[in-house]
């Protein structure tokens, strides 16, 4: 297995976006790309990352391999790469290590690190194709700000989607808060658009703690997609055009 990115920045951001939610995980490498699927320790959220082979500078995977890695260790290794350095990952069949090589574009500096692989028992969950009742596309910075603001007032957020707006509400000991975002088009700046596709109205409650973990992926993508159906996990997708995506799934809170 050998995969090379032109710039380390994307991989650094991907690891930063998931390492606090899932500690150790397996990267599954096939000839179509690298992916990981992992739950958080309390089994409330699920993370699915896909890095497509087309998104790499070069990519080769002769035999499918599952590499168990501590994401905190991977983050440490990637700290040694400059944002503009190229990154090459190498793993040989049956080897218990993965190699990282960072090279500056002027080629005057090359650094190499070897990370021990771990044995990880991963439980893979089947994620069914879902026809969602409401899909909201919005700037990822808006979602990050909304979740951070509401976290000051409560632990949970109720997201309600109607035809032309989406409402985020919370309440806590000191009071209540809500943020309403209305659909807005923007032909010259599609990344600032708020688009609401509503088949059925939806209202779901989630723990803000997890949404705040998810919005760590905001540096990877200008836009985010929230896909919701009543009594179904929320899917928060950060698309990375031509590269792949990070999808987070979060189980809703249900009335007792």
């Amino acid at each position: 297995f050998e995969a090379k990115w032109d710039h380390a920045s994307t991989l650094k951001k991907v690891i930063d976006a998931v390492k606090d939610l899932i500690g150790d995980t397996s990267w599954d490498c096939t000839n179509t790309g690298m992916s990981l699927q992992s739950m958080d320790s309390s089994h409330v959220a699920l993370v699915h990352v896909l890095l497509k082979s087309e998104g790499f500078e070069s990519y080769r995977c002769d035999r499918n391999v599952s590499m168990g890695i501590s994401l905190n260790s991977m983050a440490k290794v990637l700290k040694c790469a400059g944002n503009d350095d190229s990154v090459t990952l190498r793993h040989e069949s049956e080897s218990s290590v993965v190699n990282f090589a960072f090279e500056s574009h002027k080629e005057e500096r090359v650094s190499e690190f070897e990370l021990k692989l771990m044995n990880i028992d991963t439980e893979h969950l089947g994620i069914p194709e879902t026809e969602y009742d409401s899909i909201i596309k919005m700037p990822s910075a808006d979602l990050r700000r909304t979740c951070a603001d509401l976290s000051q007032f409560g632990d949970s957020v109720t997201i309600s989607c109607a035809k032309s707006d989406v409402r985020f509400e919370t309440s806590g000991d000191i009071g209540t808060g809500n943020v309403r975002l209305s659909a807005r088009g923007s032909s010259d700046k599609p990344e600032t658009e708020i688009a609401i596709e509503m088949i059925n109205p939806v209202s779901l409650t989630f723990a803000l703690k997890y949404l705040n973990f998810f919005t760590k992926a905001a540096p990877l993508s200008d836009t985010v997609k929230l896909c919701m159906s009543n009594n179904h996990p929320l899917c928060v997708e950060f698309p990375m055009p031509e590269v792949g995506y990070i999808r987070y799934y979060l189980a809703p809170k249900i009335d007792e």
Binding site: H43, V44, L125, S156, T205, P233, A251, K253, I254
Partner: peptide
């Protein structure tokens, strides 16, 4: 009061 459900209640092990 609302209770946090688990993701494993929605997605099945493969």
């Amino acid at each position: 009061d609302s209770k946090q459900s688990k993701i494993t209640a929605f997605f099945v092990k493969t």
